[in-house]
Amino acid sequence: MQAYWCKLLLVALAVTLTNCGTTSVKIESSFPDVVFEAKPLSAAIVFTDAFRSYVAQPNKDTQIDIGESQTRALTKTFHGLFETIEIVQSAEQASDQVDIIITPSVYEVQVATPSDNYLNVFEVWIKYNLELTDSQGQVITNWFMPAYGKTPDSFLASKEKAIKRAATVALRDAGAKLVLDFFRIPAVNGVIKQKNDSEV
């Protein structure tokens, strides 16, 4: 009987120690509308199921569920960038009238904690790939977009809370990067020019 209790205690201890090192967070932030004069273009944004439910695993001890939040953040941003947008689940569902089809995907997620970077900050990097195609499915370009967020390490604040905050800052940064640089992509400029020329 005593041996049974010892075994049970050992298993409980092992389970506790295994869970001790794992950080699993879900980002549930809301994002504001962007202040930007939308371009007279129509775009289809392809949010695949994989993108909508994406859970990043930057290392074996950390899991960040960013799927829903990144979909919300990018929807708001693209609403601000284009006069009309349609949200679809696959490129085939996009209408023929759209000027551009954008398929975002997560290329890589990295996390650094104070024990990694020897600084009093938690950092999150998200690298996105935006595949831009025309309404016929022809690839215009692939644009890699990095986003970065950090938050200070606070006394007695949990690691989960700090990573959540840093990931939210990174998602806001993705919106900022899009607003700042999307229309500077030479291929996107080409699409705008082509549209203007065809209208003239």
Partner: peptide, 8 residues
Amino acid sequence: YPWFEPRT
């Protein structure tokens, strides 16, 4: 947003 983010 996004004109007073760390990047902008």
